[in-house]
Design a protein around this nucleic acid. Structure first.
Lengths: 224, 224
DNA sequence: TCTTTTATCGAACAAATGTTTTAATAAAAC
DNA sequence: GTTTTATTAAAACATTTGTTCGATAAAAGA
């Protein structure tokens, strides 16, 4: 009995394009985009990436480690973009509606625009989903979003000083809820409208959302 | 060697309060409320319910079957409530804003009110989560929500005849996004506001949401 | 050139998963 | 009073899970 016919252990002739790490990250991101963390197995990821089963543990330590790496690759870019747009918005002169609109634009535009870029198409749904179904540690990591939101709260408070803080919090929550629904529940929108509504033109979507939320955002606090 | 000391197979002396089925359903609903379908194991459910491991398969055929049963127990009540409120809203006389508000109230009130009722506290998060992370079959079952939404689309169109249909779809999507965010992402709101904002008074929350969305809902279609 | 390090693979592993089987018992039906 | 049926619990099972292991080969360093 010699070697089995399909025996090809060890390193393959050539890594060719190399960067197993990147291949794994991309495959995982793609898969996590529409199935949850627990629902995607490491084997599925490695198969999709075209690498060995051990590759994930070698490069990331564990499945959780992969998720962490994925998260750390995706999040900072988005947050930086938001931050930069907010800085622009704060220096902007003009009427209150214009300023509020600019602030909300800074909050929404990066994430909406990202979600329709081919390269990062899977990025946003992934981030959203992880918050919902990731391991605790990662979930906590992402809940620092709360921290990243504080500048926006401040900016809104400055633009709308007559509004109680609780009112600001509520309305911000509503705005973010709409944003998330664009990534998680597009199917409903598309099926409901028989395909007439979609996210193909992100800039148009951004305007649409801003048009919708701005009046509610500017309204005086109602005392019920 | 006689029987082992902790040997107590078969039927227990008395079913006492009986209804294992109900116990399982309640336990499962509680667990599914904050962890996903795949993340909760059958053993965890049966342990929480205080029944044997086989009970789920006996009563529901499979884990999927349990989910189906759970879904069928929860969904119809909610949808019926919505339908009934909508009927009231449609017969209502008055200004356009009042009518639109009544329609949206019919859409939102049942689900928001439910989510803070002790008895059904876990009901809504569960329904929402299943849509996101359940097996395909169940997901499809719930996607008939699209069907249940059509009456609301019609009602809105009648109340706002000058608005293009696409506009209606988009705005409805936004409203539902807000609704979902109230169940999925309350933690963010609470942490952001340091506990000042919460869902303890559902009726107040409903008014708050309506106040926020109504202006955007009534606004004329913007041409960008 | 020889040795060490790095990177990769498939096989093997232990733990956990959903399900099935078996045994037991109480109530109902006969 | 006997048989049947329904319901339960625990053990056993097959599968899948994330992870580790041993082998192998290219690359890097001496």
């Amino acid at each position: 009995m010699t070697d089995s016919p399909n025996r090809k252990r060890g390193r393959p002739p050539l890594p060719i394009d190399n960067e197993t790490r990147e291949r794994i990250l991309n495959a995982a991101q793609r898969l996590f985009a529409d199935r949850s963390f627990t629902q995607v197995s490491v084997r599925e990821i490695t198969d999709t990436a075209g690498v060995g089963i051990a590759a994930i543990n070698y490069h990331f330590g564990s499945k959780d480690g992969l998720l962490r790496a994925l998260f750390q690759r995706a999040a900072p870019t988005l947050l930086a973009e938001r931050k930069q747009l907010l800085k622009v918005a704060k220096t902007l002169e003009g009427s209150t509606p214009k300023r509020v609109r600019a602030i909300l634009h800074a909050l929404l535009a990066p994430v909406i625009r990202w979600s329709s870029l081919e390269a990062t198409q899977t990025n946003v749904p992934f981030l959203v989903r992880v918050q919902l179904d990731g391991p605790d540690e990662i979930r906590a990591l992402g809940e620092s979003e709360t921290g990243h939101l504080k500048p926006f709260v401040r900016a809104l408070h400055e633009a709308l000083p007559e509004l109680p803080m609780t009112e600001i919090y509520w309305r911000l929550q509503f705005v973010l809820g709409i944003e998330h629904s664009l990534h998680q529940e597009v199917k409903r929108l598309e099926s409901l409208s028989s395909g007439a509504c979609n996210l193909d033109e992100p800039d148009a979507v951004i305007e649409r959302v801003l048009d919708f939320v701005l009046p509610g955002m500017l309204a005086p606090a109602n005392s019920h």
